[in-house]
Nucleic acid binder design. Sequence first.
DNA 1: CCTACCGATCGGTAGG
DNA 2: CCTACCGATCGGTAGG
Lengths: 194, 194
Amino acid sequence: MVETRRRQIEDVASELFRERGYAATGVRDIARALDIQGASLYAHVTSKEDVLWAIVDRAACAFEAAADAAERRSAGQPAPDRLRAFVEGHLGVVTADPESASVFDREWRHLAGTRHDTMLARRDAYERRLRRLIATGTAAGELAPADPALAATFLLTALNAVATWYRSDGTRSPAALATAYGDLAVRSLTDPGR
Amino acid sequence: MVETRRRQIEDVASELFRERGYAATGVRDIARALDIQGASLYAHVTSKEDVLWAIVDRAACAFEAAADAAERRSAGQPAPDRLRAFVEGHLGVVTADPESASVFDREWRHLAGTRHDTMLARRDAYERRLRRLIATGTAAGELAPADPALAATFLLTALNAVATWYRSDGTRSPAALATAYGDLAVRSLTDPGR
DNA sequence: CCTACCGATCGGTAGG
DNA sequence: CCTACCGATCGGTAGG
């Protein structure tokens, strides 16, 4: 597998940031995992926060692209199917790289200044897409009555938490997980009376 | 309100640990919030980790007590009602002290040695209670067919995440939140066909 | 609860 | 990518 040194650094950092957290991971921990000296890292990156940003930004882009694809794929279908497509798209990103997804979820707040603020805005925009899906579906009578903001947070926090515990070498396949979580998500917004 | 100095330290630490994380919070940050010198903290605590342990242990006890009460309160009722009681009990603890609940959820892994291991065991035991509730309800045909382990994780991660975003001074009352989340949780395990 | 101080470690730079 | 090194900050102790 061809992989630039820069990308190796980000991959190793994702693992460590997920396991110990950004603040508790030293640049020397990252270097040690690559068998180089701590100071040598700076031949490839300009700062520790730069590495965090690269991981978080890439994950954010992946989530946005997955939501785009899910919307395109399910356009015109009933709300429960559009919801399932969103959930499966989101979990696809999480299971493809749980380390980065976890850092995106839990460590982005260690970004400073503009990076912090733009990431907050992108997260809000992403959550708003799910909120709108729910609001539209509820208004159309295709989903159970629910506070869209609360329901979106409920679902998104459950989905993001998968990044914390999912292991790529585990027994649960991404597809099986997506189906099971899709069932739970869709049912949580399905009126039992129908 | 009477409050020991020790308890003030834990309360201030809960806030800071939730906002910035345990590793990114210095003992001098805690001291500054109390208008004392960093070294003066050690007249009241023996280590930074001691403070973390006190917060996490107290929260764990509160969750365990709430689950006990929920089980007693809902014993003999159908599974959906027992599930709702569990959810409302858990969220009661979260909304009563979101700072501590968040530290319990996100920072406990910074504990070392025995404390880490016993807390992991207690968390597992707690999750197992919810898992058993779901498994029993599913077997009895009172809940939709679902993988109990996966469903318990789905719900518990959504519930714990409330501690991250809930503000006691917000517009959402604990009771309204518990009802809305109870609806979502119960529906997620309710077969739409009934 | 304070002042004074400790060794260790932090992220990062200089200069090859 | 290395060695050598920087100032700042870390959690914590001594002795009042």
